[in-house]
Each structure stands twice: as structure tokens, then as C-alpha cells.
Design a protein around this nucleic acid. Structure first.
Lengths: 209, 209
DNA sequence: CTACAAAGATGAATGACTTCAACTTTTTTA
DNA sequence: TAAAAAAGTTGAAGTCATTCATCTTTGTAG
């Protein structure tokens, strides 16, 4: 199985992705030509296309790496979330935000989002959508955990509530990546201001009026 | 002022836009080449670029036309909205949806949205964002009208509420254009189901629990 | 070890958007 | 009205993503 050919293939793919992460970050997605990646990865242009179907495909592979990191970070929060409901929700949201710029720049995020909207039926569009869904599901899981603890009202369905929270944090993230001047700190503060009031509405044993 | 040159310029621009609306609808934005538009408008490729900076620019001009129609339709609702709060909100939302496919196809909407996200700092991105804001403002205006009438609770700020409603209808519209198989009717039903419960929460003189 | 088959790498060719230096048409000036 | 200036048009050339026929490398059978 692990013959020479297999090893070489794995190595080439790794080199191409490595080149992409480096060059996209350094020069911007748009400015980087496939030939630049090929040069850095020491393969030909044609070979890049043997491993990735399109330029957007290479970007999406990077997005997938990033989102895996984000999901991992989220899992850590899920295992032992803060006591207070608002703190717990914000802990997860901030974990997402804090791990969102590991491999990707704002420009890369914008391009990936644009790609997913423009061609939702392609493998890439579907892949992005699927990553979104996993994040929304993790948010729902957190709500479930809090409900099991008894800190979130029993009469709420964790799934749509998680989706609502995710839609909001995602929309706010979109505003963030659309504005090159907005800092992570401003993003955090805004979402904080939005989320705490909502959290008050869903805590158990409190009258809502 | 209205010399020969001016007339010719206006006429060329009109012909190019007309060609774009026709061809984009018939063959799809992606499939249409600038040369096709140039041929139909009886100008050269270079001339197309004297009137529009990029291919996306031509699309955005079409989007602007469409949104003007949508805003007009909305204004009609604003002058005499239905009595019930939920009916009034839905009347405006449906007016938007019903006028959204006059000039644009789903593919064209997707492309325009992708463009606006990918390049938010360009004239086109800003233009799209601005159109969005005008729609959100109109939704806020409707809430204001209803509040003035006394059917919406006094203690709510119409502006963020309008933005929330717009964000939701916009998000739902995004889902609609992402799915080529979804009909306008399904979109309407979904938004109806989302909006009526929310409307109940904001009507005046009703206890919320 | 040799020859054949399979897998994969290669880069020149293709196609589409965009640019720009040269050419036309319109307007202004005398 | 004729020349000069200004404005605008033109399409060939440039750039870059993507494809594909050909060549090279690796694996396998005798």
C-alpha cells in the first residue's frame, strides 16, 4: 500500500496545500497564480490540477483545515462550559472567533463565502455548507448541555435555538470579514452585547416579561 | 448639452444594459461573454468597458434597477398597510419577493451577492450594501408607521427591529436563490411561519410571557 | 532483468475578462 | 468652413484559470 508512488502523491499534495496557505496569506488569494503555487510546491501547473479541481478548491481545503481547528476548540469548551448561560455561549462563540484566522485571512474568508454562495450546488459549495452545519450543530449541542445541567429552560428546543445563535454569530463574522479595519475585539464586544440579553431570555427559573 | 455626442452615449449605454438584461436572463450570467453583449448592442468590446468597469458592474446595474422596482412596490404597501401587524409585515416582505425576479434570475442574484461579499470595498460592493440598507430602512419605516398607528408596542425601537426583520427576510431570500428548485411559494410559506410568531410578540396591548 | 501496463506529471494551447495605443467622430476655434 | 482639440471607439494583445494530448515514472508479470 505505502509504495513509493503513494508516498510521493501524499507529499505533493501536502506541498501544494502548504504553498497555498503560505502564499495566499502573504500575497492574497487573488494575486496568487496557480503557477506560483506550482513553483513553490515544485510541481507543474497540470499537477496542481491533478490534486485540486479548481483554485477555489485549494482555498476550500484550507477553510476545511481552519474549521476543523475551530470545531476542536469548540469541543474543549463543550466538555466543561462556564457556569452562567451567557458566559458559556460566549465562551464557545469566542473560541470560534479566536481560531478563525489561524490559516485564513479576511480576504480568504470572503472569497470562500462568495464561492459558496455563487455555486452552492458544486462540491465546494456543498462542502462549505456542510462545515457551517457542523458548527451550528455544535452550538446546539452546547445549548443541550446547558439544558441538561438545568440552567436553560426546559421548554426550548435546543436545535433551532442553536441554529439561531449560529446564524447570528455567522452574520456578525461576515460583517467582520467584510471590513478589513474591524478588529477581533470589536467583533467580540458587539456579539457580547447581542448575546447576553438573549441569554437572559433562555435561562431557567426566570420570569420573562 | 443634449448634443449628438450625449445622445449617442446615452443610447449606447441603454443598448448595452438592455443586451445584458436579455442575454443574462436567457443564457445565464456566466455563459454570456462581453463580446456577446458588444455584438448585441452593436458596439465593440472596448466600448462596453467605457461604460461599465467590469462584467460584475453590468450585473450590478441590473440589480440596482431591480431593487428600485422592489422599493417602489414597498412604498405602495407603506402608504396603506393592512390593519393587522403580521399582515402588514408580510405584505411588505411578499411585495419584495414578488418583485425580485423581474430582471434577475436566481443565478444573477447569487453572482451579485457573491460579488458584494468578495469585494465589499469596491464601488460595486458598496453599492449593493447601500441598496440593502435602503431596504432595511424601508422595513424600519413600516414598523414606525405601525407604531404610530398604535398597533406596535411603544417600547420597541423601530430601527433595530426593522433591521432584524430585514436580516431574516434577506437570509431566507439567500436560501431561496441558493436552491434552484425552491419556488417563491415555498419561500413565502416559510417566512410566513417565521414572521407571524414574531409579529405576535411586538403587537401593542398584549402580554408577553 | 526486461518488457509491458498503469498511473501520474507536464506545459503548451484554449478561452474569457480586461487593458491600451492607435484611430474616428464630434465639437470648438479662428 | 477648415484646422485643431477633445472625446470616444476599436480590436488586438496581455493575463490568468483551466484542459488535454504526450511523455515519464512506477509497478508488475514472465
Amino acid at each position: 500500500m505505502a509504495g513509493l508512488r503513494e508516498k510521493q502523491k501524499a507529499d505533493r499534495e501536502r506541498r501544494i496545500l502548504q504553498a497555498a496557505v503560505t502564499k495566499f496569506r502573504a500575497d492574497g488569494y487573488r494575486a496568487v497564480r496557480i503557477e506560483d503555487l506550482a513553483d513553490m510546491a515544485e510541481v507543474s501547473v497540470g499537477t496542481v490540477y491533478n490534486y485540486y479541481q479548481t483554485k477555489g478548491d485549494i482555498l476550500m481545503a484550507t477553510v476545511a483545515m481552519e474549521v476543523e481547528e475551530v470545531l476542536d476548540a469548540g469541543l474543549t469548551i463543550l466538555t466543561d462550559p462556564p457556569e452562567a448561560v451567557d458566559d458559556a455561549l460566549l465562551a464557545l462563540i469566542f473560541a470560534y472567533y479566536d481560531h478563525s484566522l489561524e490559516y485564513l485571512t479576511k480576504e480568504m474568508w470572503r472569497t470562500a463565502m462568495a464561492l459558496a454562495i455563487e455555486a452552492p450546488g458544486t462540491p465546494n459549495g456543498r462542502r462549505y455548507f456542510e462545515l457551517d452545519q457542523r458548527l451550528a450543530a455544535q452550538m446546539s449541542d452546547l445549548v443541550q448541555v446547558l439544558q441538561d445541567r438545568g440552567t436553560v429552560r426546559r421548554d426550548l428546543d435546543p436545535r433551532p435555538l442553536g441554529v439561531l445563535l449560529f446564524n447570528n454569530l455567522n452574520q456578525m463574522f461576515l460583517e467582520f470579514v467584510k471590513d478589513d479595519d474591524m478588529t477581533l475585539d470589536v467583533l467580540r464586544r458587539r456579539v457580547d452585547a447581542q448575546t447576553r440579553p438573549l441569554a437572559q431570555l433562555i435561562v431557567a427559573g426566570t420570569a420573562v416579561h
